Amino acid sequence: MVMDVADMPMVIKVFSEDLVEIGEAVEEALDKHEEGMTVLMAEADKLRLDTIRTIVEFLLSLKRLHVSLHEWRRGREERCLSGVQPLEVEQGSQRDQPLVDVGVWVL
């Protein structure tokens, strides 16, 4: 039904009907169009709501990441300032390697 609203212009809908009176054809075409637009608007509202929900969830995740990184950095600075030395890592050991190979990004 939604595709019917978008595909066929109103004038073609009115004159494609084999009804006796033009007034009835116009009313029927407008009623069909109204039904289609109602469904279309409901689907558009649902899409907008889903999009906003996804964006809010993404922003909340970014905020959690930001706070976690901030707390991690603060703890690291406190350890450095309090004189606690980090564990020594042997050169070439597994702990010396990065967790993820980032590589080079070319845009």
Rank of each mutant, 00 (worst) to 15 (best):
M1Q: 07
M1G: 07
V2A: 05
M3P: 03
D4I: 12
D4K: 15
V5E: 01
A6S: 07
D7T: 14
M10R: 02
V11C: 03
I12L: 14
I12H: 09
K13V: 07
K13I: 04
K13F: 02
V14T: 01
V14D: 00
F15S: 05
S16H: 11
E17Q: 15
L19H: 05
L19Q: 04
V20L: 07
I22R: 05
G23H: 14
E24Q: 11
A25G: 15
A25F: 02
A25K: 03
V26P: 01
E27W: 03
D31A: 15
D31K: 15
K32H: 07
K32R: 15
E34A: 13
E35A: 15
E35T: 05
M37N: 04
M37H: 07
M37F: 13
V39Q: 06
L40H: 09
L40Y: 12
M41K: 13
A42F: 14
E43Y: 09
K46L: 11
K46M: 04
K46F: 03
K46S: 06
R48Q: 09
L49A: 14
L49Q: 12
T51Y: 08
I52H: 06
R53N: 12
R53L: 08
I55R: 06
I55S: 02
V56K: 14
E57C: 04
E57Y: 02
F58P: 00
F58Q: 09
F58E: 07
L59T: 03
L59P: 00
L60S: 02
S61C: 10
L62S: 03
K63W: 07
R64C: 02
R64K: 13
R64L: 07
L65T: 08
V67T: 05
S68I: 01
L69S: 03
L69K: 10
H70C: 06
E71P: 01
E71S: 07
E71D: 14
W72K: 09
W72L: 08
R74W: 11
R74I: 14
G75V: 02
R76V: 10
E77Y: 11
E78W: 06
R79A: 06
R79H: 08
C80D: 07
C80K: 11
C80F: 10
L81S: 02
S82K: 15
Q85A: 13
Q85C: 11
E88K: 13
E88S: 09
E88M: 12
V89S: 03
V89H: 01
E90W: 08
Q91C: 05
G92F: 14
G92A: 09
G92S: 10
S93K: 00
Q94H: 12
R95N: 04
R95E: 15
D96N: 13
D96A: 15
Q97I: 12
P98I: 06
P98K: 01
P98A: 02
L99C: 04
L99K: 05
V102T: 04
G103D: 01
G103C: 05
G103L: 03
W105N: 03
V106A: 04
L107G: 08
L107I: 06
